[in-house]
C-alpha cells in the first residue's frame, strides 16, 4: 500500500503494546472512567485491579486455552438458547440438590441435554450495594443473562469461596423472601431457563450455566444501591443463593443485564429509562465503567445501530451486522449470511463468532494482508495465528464491521488480536460450525 493508504487502512503498532497486562504493572484506573454518581467501576475478574477484592482467586486463574474453552461453552449455550426449544428442569424445589445436567428433561427430540442451561459467566465485575445497611458485593456483570443472584448466608448447602463477606439476609432490615404465588416467581422461569420450585411458601430458583456452574436458592427482594451517589432501588428482586458451585472467580455472584422482566435493566427502567452503557477496560490493569441512564458515555461521537428483537432468544440483544472490511476493502459476503442465524452482542463472550462464509472471507483477506509475517500454530478455537517475535512493529489491516443504520465501527488494534505471547498472536475471531448458528 501507498503511505497514505497505509495510514488510513492499516494499524502500525508496536508489538509490545499487544501484550496483555501483568500483575507487575499494578492497577492503573482509567482517567476516562466515568465518575458520575450512577456509574460503577468495571474491573477484569482476574486482572491486577481485582487483586484487592479477589486476591484469593489468583491461583485459580484460567490458562488461555481454558479461557477459550470456557468461551466456547458459553457460545454453545447461547446457540442452544437461541434455537426454538422446550425444556425444563424437572424440579429445583429441593435446594439441597444441584440441578444436574441429567435432571434437565428434553421435550424436543434431538436437542442436547444442556439446552436448558444458561450461559457461563463473563470476565468483568462491578461492585453494588445490597440490603439495609448496604453490603458491598462484587458481581460479574453480564448483558447475556437476566437473573441477578448472590451467595447468601447461611449457605445451607454450599458456597464457593468469595472475597466479600457473604450476604446475610438476617442483617438487612429491608430483606423479604418472595412467595411461590407471586407473579414474580413465575417470571423466574424465563429468566433462568428453569421452572421455579417452592420450599414452604418461598419461591426457589435454580440457574445452571453452560459450564455446569450453578446457583440455587430463594427468590427475594431487597434494596439495591448503585454508584457513588448511592442511587437506591427499593424492592429489587434477586436470587439469594444457598447452594452455589462453579467458576465464578471469587465474585459474590452475577448481575444480569439482559432483556427479561427480572433483569436489572428492566427493574430499574423507571429510574434509568432502559438505558445503560459500559466500557470494558482496554487492559486488565485498567478499569472501565458501567453506567445506568442516558449521558453515561465519555465519548460524544456515538454511532447507533438498531436493536433487533426476535422470537428466539428474547433475552439477547440482537443487532444487524451487514458486512465486514479488511484493510479498507469490503469483503464479498452475501447479506443473508448474517441474517440466517442472527447476530447478537454479549458482554461476556471473549471471541466474536462469525458465520462460516463470513469467517472464511475474513480469514482469507487477513492472511493476505499479513502474508509477510510467519504463521504460528492454532490456539484452541483460534486458527489464524502469527509469530511476531522477530518484529518490534507490525502493520496490521484495520477490520471494520458494518451495521444497519449505516453504522460502522473500525476495531482498534487491541480488538483484532488475542495474544497468548508474542510468538502466538491470533486473529480474535472464530467461525461458527453451522451457517444457521
Amino acid at each position: 500500500p501507498q503511505p497514505l493508504e497505509q495510514e488510513h487502512h492499516f494499524h502500525i503498532v508496536e508489538v509490545s503494546s499487544l501484550l496483555p497486562a501483568t500483575d507487575v504493572e499494578g492497577c492503573n484506573p482509567s482517567p476516562k472512567g466515568n465518575k458520575k454518581g450512577n456509574s460503577l467501576e468495571v474491573r477484569h475478574k482476574h486482572g491486577p485491579c481485582s487483586s484487592s477484592t479477589l486476591e484469593s482467586d489468583k491461583e485459580s486463574r484460567p490458562s488461555h486455552v481454558e479461557i477459550l474453552e470456557n468461551d466456547e461453552k458459553r457460545v454453545d449455550s447461547i446457540r442452544e438458547r437461541v434455537k426454538p426449544k422446550s425444556v425444563e428442569v424437572d424440579s429445583v424445589t429441593d435446594h439441597k440438590k444441584a440441578p444436574k445436567k441429567d435432571r434437565v428433561k428434553q421435550k424436543a427430540v434431538g436437542l442436547p441435554v444442556k439446552s436448558g442451561s444458561t450461559i457461563g459467566s463473563g470476565n468483568f465485575i462491578v461492585t453494588i450495594g445490597l440490603g439495609t445497611p448496604k453490603k458491598d458485593l462484587s458481581l460479574i456483570f453480564d448483558t447475556g443473562s437476566d437473573f441477578t443472584w448472590t451467595q447468601c448466608e447461611p449457605c445451607k448447602r454450599s458456597c464457593y469461596k468469595q472475597k466479600d463477606p457473604v450476604f446475610n439476609p438476617s442483617e438487612s432490615s429491608t430483606y423479604t423472601n418472595i412467595t411461590c404465588t407471586s407473579t414474580l416467581c413465575s417470571e423466574v422461569r424465563s429468566a433462568t431457563s428453569a421452572k421455579p420450585g417452592c420450599a414452604g411458601s418461598t419461591c426457589v430458583y435454580g440457574i445452571q450455566y453452560g459450564d455446569s456452574s450453578f446457583s440455587v436458592g430463594f427468590l427475594a427482594k431487597d434494596t439495591l444501591t448503585l454508584g457513588s451517589s448511592y442511587d437506591t432501588i427499593p424492592n429489587f428482586y434477586f436470587g439469594c443463593g444457598e447452594n452455589n458451585q462453579g467458576l465464578f472467580g471469587g465474585s459474590a455472584g452475577l448481575i444480569g443485564l439482559g432483556r427479561n422482566q427480572l433483569s436489572v435493566m428492566s427493574q430499574c427502567a423507571t429510574k434509568y429509562g432502559q438505558v445503560f452503557s459500559y466500557c470494558l477496560p482496554s487492559k486488565a490493569s485498567s478499569t472501565g465503567h458501567l453506567t445506568f441512564g442516558k449521558g453515561g458515555t465519555s465519548s460524544k461521537s456515538i454511532t447507533y445501530t438498531p436493536l433487533l428483537s426476535g422470537s428466539a432468544g428474547a433475552s439477547f440483544y440482537f443487532i444487524d451486522l451487514q458486512g465486514l472490511s479488511v484493510g479498507g476493502q469490503k469483503l464479498s459476503i452475501q447479506p443473508t449470511v448474517f441474517t440466517q442465524g442472527g447476530v447478537l452482542i454479549d458482554s461476556g463472550t471473549v471471541i466474536t463468532r462469525l458465520p462460516p462464509d463470513a469467517y472464511s472471507a475474513l480469514q482469507a483477506a487477513f492472511n493476505k494482508a499479513m502474508s509477510k509475517y510467519p504463521k504460528a500454530p492454532a490456539l484452541s478455537i483460534l486458527d489464524t495465528c502469527f509469530d511476531l517475535s522477530k518484529y518490534t512493529t507490525v502493520t496490521v489491516p484495520k477490520i471494520g464491521l458494518q451495521f444497519g443504520g449505516k453504522a460502522e465501527i473500525v476495531l482498534p488494534a487491541a480488538g483484532i488480536f488475542y495474544v497468548k505471547d508474542i510468538s502466538q498472536v491470533c486473529l480474535a475471531f472464530a467461525g461458527n460450525g453451522d451457517a444457521s448458528d
Binding site: 477484569h44 445503560f276 486488565a284 447507533y304 436493536l307
Partner: peptide, 30 residues
C-alpha cells in the same frame, strides 16, 4: 500471567438504549 477479556469491545463505549431500540458504539471509551 496476563489475562485478556472481550477484545472486540475494548476501548469502545457501548450504549444500550433499549427504550429507543438502538445500540451505540463510541470510540476511546476508557
Amino acid at each position: 500471567v496476563g489475562i485478556l477479556g472481550n477484545v472486540q469491545q475494548l476501548t469502545f463505549d457501548v450504549v444500550y438504549d433499549v427504550a429507543g431500540s438502538k445500540l451505540g458504539f463510541g470510540p476511546g471509551g476508557c
